[in-house]
Amino acid sequence: MLEAKLSEAALLKRLLDAVKELVSDANFECNEEGIQLQAMDNSHVALVSVKLYASGFKRYRCDRPLPLGVNLGSLTKVLKCAKDDDICTLKAGDDADILSLTYEAKSAYADRIAEYEMKLMDIDADQLGIPDTDYDASVTMPSSEFLRIVRDLSLLGESVRIEVSKEGIRFVSDGEAANGNILIKQNAEASGKKKGSIEMNSAVTLTFSLKYLVNFSKSSSLSKKVQLMMSNDVPLLVSYAFNQGHIRYYLAPKIGD
């Protein structure tokens, strides 16, 4: 059985928000290490991988590996019934056919305990092995800055070319009616304060769909920083780390000409 108690429902709400438009159904793989979700979108262009460490929960118990097949739309609805600061407990039995969620709140006049149950489903999905990759370029920047860049450029065109060079990282969008490019230079003062960093072994140029990057940027509410890892001709890794775990996205580049 699984019993996992989170100190704030907001974490799950934000995670669902950051995943549900890419993937409609997914297995929450629960084991003694924590809860993991890994799924590819229908078009096999993007993969999302979420990890919640057991240590990130107020209480965590999982006796044996348990895949919980979740319809993310249904879970989103059930989580909407929780207040952000409610204590949230997830429970499932070994037969994994029902997920129960309990929301507890203390207020000035009374304690409220709300209980919800949702049906789980059998999802036949291959677990994918993600190879360790030595990336040619690694860029860490404020997640709000990345959100703003991809949102702005998505107004101009469908794609963004990301160029990492000695100059810094440049985001370029060539739209039909307008184009734009944004250069972020390594700033000695800023890097000293650990606001961001650009590390590069060799120059990288890759082109990506902005629609996906805008979608990934929903994770900005989970972490103040985002890390972009790139090598030529391999998927981009967009990683957000938070206290209780991480969310990572892999995105296939656009190819050819």
Partner: peptide
């Protein structure tokens, strides 16, 4: 114009 690539081939089934 560039075509959208796929992830197939980058990850292996466990």
């Amino acid at each position: 114009a560039k075509q959208q690539g796929r992830l197939d081939g980058f990850f292996t089934a466990k």
